[in-house]
Structure formats: structure tokens, C-alpha cells
Amino acid sequence: MICEGSEVILSVRDLTADVDGTQILKGLNLEVKAGEIHAIMGPNGSGKSTFSKILAGHPDYTVTGGEITYLGQNLLEIEAEDRARSGVFLAFQYPIEIPGVSNTDFLRIAYNSKRKHEGLEELDAFDFDELLQSKLNVVKMNPAFLNRSVNEGFSGGEKKRNEILQMALLEPKLAILDETDSGLDIDALKVVAGGVNELRTSENAVVLITHYQRLLNYIVPDYVHVMESGRIVTTGGKDLALELEARGYDWIREEEAEAIAR
């Protein structure tokens, strides 16, 4: 939902970034306000996942220019864990498996890190369990998964549900979903999308990074951005996604080339 005058959550200006000395982002601009859902689409290698990792603070990516402001603060000066504690959440394309750490323990440690950051008392195992049970419904997760090691032996769909469960628990201000739809069958996609819709409020914002329009049937974006060679080259409403699905990305490149020629 676009509301005039709502709070600016994320503002990205002229962002450039490298990975191993190769420039991936080449002047990216984006503004996200509370209540909005933004979809970032684009061909493979356009820099979508790099952008999501930079927002979350992955150490392998080097920002070489531009700025990112999150709730009025310079995001680039904040450590990854503090970004998470202050409400930035990245749902991973490939969630990591952590053998030996139970999902419940992991979720509790993560949840309590945030509570501590907010100056709140940490929840004990008992109270946390109650809270967790109430969140399971968001992603219709089988409670048996809570006692298993984090993501270990989970199917692709189960891993993505687990990501959304974490989102439900951490209640982020800014959620970035990096190709959360990839590899999901239609039922799992509906569950995951339903979870995201349920968690969305007028206070938070969602950035969906996706390759396919399919997800946008279930999570309706306010804006669709097209990324190409490390920049956002076109922005439109939800209909832009349909056009991309029908026509591919080449026409954008052509239009851009024409624009440059002019």
C-alpha cells in the first residue's frame, strides 16, 4: 500500500559495490517507505542478490560508493548483527544448514538477541516456546521441525518456510526476500506468500527479489523495479511484471540503449 507521507524506511543513492574486485552494482537508487512492497526483477547476474546481501551486511561485498540510509541512519556503518537487531531481515535464497544446533535453540538465540538490543528481558525457554507455537501457523510448519537441526535435511520448501517463520518471529521493519520463490511448488509458494502477506503491516516494508512474475500473483507489489547491469533501469506498477513475463527483458535493454543514444 502506498501512503503519502509515510516514513522512509530505506533510501539507497548511487550505490556502487564490488565482489572480488569486480564491480557488480553501478549506481543503484531505491526508496522504500513504510507499508510498501517493492519487487526487484531482472535477469541473472544483474546484481539483485548482491544488493540483498549488501543490505544485510555480508562481509564479502565491498561498497565503493553511494549511500544507504535505513530509518535515518547510515546502514553501512552498522554491523550485520546490529542491522538484524534493528529490523533488517534477509530471507536467504539458500538458507544455511547448521548441524548440531536445534531449530528452537537457534530461533530463541536470534529472538533474544533482538530483545536484548531493544532493552527487553530475554524470554526463557518456556515462554519462548509458547510464542514460537503461536507463530508456526503463519507458515503451517510441522512442530517436529523445531527439534531438528537448523535446516539440516529440510527440503527446499521447508527451508523457505523456516525463513518465513524466522521473519514472523523477528518482525522486521524491512524484509528482503531473496528469490524466496525459487524451487517452490505451487502449494509451498502459496504458504510462503500467505505468510508474508500476514506479516505485512502499514509500519513495515518488503523488498521481493525474484526472477519470476509468479510470486507476484500472491504477493502484490506496489512497485516493480527492473535491474540490469547493477542499476535499476525501469520502475513501474504491478503490470510491469506481467509485461516482463510476456516480453522478457530484452526490450528494456533496447529502450535503455535508445535512451542513451538520444
Binding site: 550485520a80 531481515f89 547448521i98 536470534a110
Partner: peptide, 13 residues
């Protein structure tokens, strides 16, 4: 990537 995954959930390095 493992360390980062945990950091991205608010757990310090």
C-alpha cells in the same frame, strides 16, 4: 556464509 547467516539473525560474529 555460515557465520553471516547467523549474524543476519542478530547473533554477533
Amino acid at each position: 556464509d555460515e557465520v553471516f547467516y547467523l549474524q543476519s539473525r542478530g547473533i554477533d560474529e
